[in-house]
Structure formats: C-alpha cells, structure tokens
C-alpha cells in the first residue's frame, strides 16, 4: 500500500455553477433579464415584486416569477394576483434555492415570450449567497426596520449582489433609520454598488427601480424589439 497526494482543484459547487451557466445562456438567448432577489425574511421581497409585476404588466412587458419558500405557497398566491405567470418552488425546508430547482420549474414556460424573470429566493442572508441561479442581476434588499449594520453582519451576501434596495422607506422616520450610515455600510462591503430606496406601499422609488431594470436589459441588448 502506498499513500499519495492527488491534486484535484475542483469547486464543490461546480455542478450548481455549470447548471447555472447553462440556464443563464438559455435565458439570455431567449431575451429574458433574470433577477435574483435575496434578503432576510420579511424585508419586503414579495411586496416589491407585487408592485413591480403589476407595473410591468401595465407597461405591456412580460414578466414571470419563481418564488422560493420553505413550506407555504402564500407568496406565490400573493404574486399571482398581479396576473403574471408565477410558480412556487417549495424547498421542503432547504434554506436556499439551487440552479437545478430553477431549471426544473422553467421546463414548461415559453421563455421566448418573457422579458423579465424574477426569482424570489428563500428569506435568508447566509446560504443563498453561495448559489448562482443563472441570474443576470442579484438584488439584495434591506428594510429600514432591520438596522443600518446588516451589511456589516452579512458581508458575503451584500458583496455578492449587484444592486441594493433599501425598502419600506415610508416608515424610515418612525424607525429612526439612518440612510447615510446604511449606505456607507453597503459601500464598505461592496464599493460602487448601486443603492436604490423604495416603498412598495407608497410607490416611492419605484420609477428608479423600473428604469434600473430597463437599463440592465438594454445593457445586455435583451431588447423587446424582436419579441
């Protein structure tokens, strides 16, 4: 018997990453901008999506949503009210979504008919950061009720995101929320990240968010012209 060292140099999440790469290619080819929404539970992912889906529909754009949830389909039912295609991904207690789950749930959708695909991840600021879902843009939400130091407590997920949205701005004052400090903390863990502020209730900041989405689509030349 002899003992030897075998070099491997292989990523443990390679399998997920490969599926995600394939997915991203498929979605981009179909002209879909894919957005992965991550946040802690209760930060307002569903509320933001409700409003976003409704407005996009009014603008004549075609969006769809996949919603990850540990056990219920409450969020999917809320989103379905906006009249766009919505599918629930029940993770059976899993704390995050994986690329395979997204791929499985897209199987019977006509991607060519879509402009936007939103993936609402499981409310969790730790595990989802490691899993690429094939998205073009990862958006992290921080609600004003959570405190300004969340980005410093969870640098991984904030660093992995492309855009940050500070939600529930309508109650910022009551929460004594310090926007400047929160923004500085986000910049500290992810220099240069675009920060938006919204209220899904009052609609404040929704225009900025929607132009941001349109810009992301344009910059990837995922135009609606050929749809």
């Amino acid at each position: 018997m002899n003992t030897r060292v075998l070099e491997i140099r292989k990523g443990i999440l390679n399998k997920n990453d490969e599926i995600a790469r394939g997915l991203r290619g498929r979605l981009q080819h179909a002209g879909v901008l894919t957005v992965n929404l991550v946040s802690s539970p209760g930060a307002g992912k569903t509320a933001l999506l409700q409003r976003t889906l409704r407005v996009l529909r009014e603008q004549g754009l075609h969006a769809a949503a996949l919603v990850g949830d540990l056990a219920t389909d409450n969020d999917a039912r809320r989103l379905a009210e906006s009249g766009v295609p919505v599918k629930q991904i029940n993770t059976d207690g899993r704390c995050h979504l994986e690329a395979q789950m997204v791929s499985d749930h897209l199987a019977d959708w006509d991607l060519g008919a879509l402009d936007y695909l939103f993936i609402e991840n499981v409310g969790n600021l730790v595990c989802p950061s490691s899993y690429d879902l094939g998205e073009d843009v990862r958006v992290v939400l921080l609600s004003v009720t959570e405190g300004e130091d969340k980005p410093l407590k969870y640098p991984n997920i904030f660093n992995s995101a492309d855009i940050a949205i500070i939600t529930k701005m309508d109650i910022a004052e009551a929460c004594e929320f310090d926007l400047e400090t929160a923004s500085a903390n986000i910049q500290s863990v992810r220099p240069g990240m675009q920060i938006l502020t919204t209220s899904s209730k009052s609609g404040v900041g929704m225009n900025d968010w929607l132009s941001c989405l349109a810009h992301e689509r344009q910059s990837r030349t995922l135009t609606t012209a050929d749809a």
Binding site: T3, V5, G11
Partner: peptide, 10 residues
Amino acid sequence: LEIESIEIDV
C-alpha cells in the same frame, strides 16, 4: 470553496 487535493491509499 474548492477541493485542492486528496491524500489516498493506493
């Protein structure tokens, strides 16, 4: 998050 190497008995 990767395996660099493994030490094996052959």
